[in-house]
Simulated scan of single mutants.
Amino acid sequence: MKIIAEQAWSHVLMDNGTDWILTYLIGGVVEIDVSIRLSKEEIAKIRDNPNYLEILLDAVKTNQVAYASRELHPPVWPQPE
Rank of each mutant, 00 (worst) to 15 (best):
M1E: 05
M1D: 02
K2C: 09
K2Q: 13
K2V: 08
I3W: 09
I4C: 03
A5L: 12
A5Q: 10
E6V: 00
E6K: 15
W9I: 05
W9C: 06
W9F: 12
S10R: 13
S10F: 04
H11D: 04
H11N: 01
L13N: 00
L13M: 06
M14L: 11
D15T: 05
G17M: 07
T18M: 12
T18S: 15
T18C: 06
T18I: 07
T18D: 14
D19Y: 06
D19M: 10
W20E: 02
W20F: 05
W20Q: 02
W20H: 04
I21C: 02
I21A: 01
L22V: 03
L22T: 00
T23R: 07
T23G: 09
T23I: 13
Y24M: 07
I26H: 01
G27A: 02
G28A: 07
G28H: 07
G28W: 03
G28N: 10
V29G: 00
V29C: 00
V29T: 03
V29Q: 00
V29K: 00
E31I: 11
D33C: 05
D33R: 15
V34T: 07
S35N: 11
I36G: 01
R37C: 15
R37F: 04
R37E: 14
R37D: 12
R37N: 09
R37Q: 11
L38E: 03
L38S: 01
S39F: 04
S39K: 10
S39H: 11
K40M: 09
K40W: 10
K40N: 12
E41V: 14
E41Q: 13
E42R: 02
I43T: 06
A44E: 09
A44H: 07
A44C: 07
K45Y: 06
I46G: 01
I46P: 01
R47D: 13
D48I: 08
D48W: 05
D48T: 09
N49M: 11
N49I: 10
P50R: 12
P50N: 07
N51E: 15
N51V: 09
Y52F: 15
Y52D: 07
L53P: 03
L53I: 12
E54D: 13
I55F: 08
I55Y: 06
I55C: 00
I55H: 12
I55D: 04
L56T: 05
L57M: 07
D58P: 00
T62K: 11
Q64S: 15
Q64Y: 10
Q64G: 15
V65D: 14
V65A: 06
A66D: 13
Y67V: 04
Y67C: 02
Y67T: 06
A68D: 12
A68Y: 15
A68N: 02
A68V: 09
R70W: 08
E71P: 01
L72E: 03
L72P: 10
H73L: 07
H73D: 08
H73V: 11
P74W: 11
P74V: 14
P75F: 10
P75S: 09
P75Y: 06
V76W: 08
W77T: 06
W77I: 06
W77C: 03
P78M: 09
Q79A: 13
Q79W: 13
Q79N: 03
Q79L: 14
P80W: 06
E81A: 14
E81S: 14
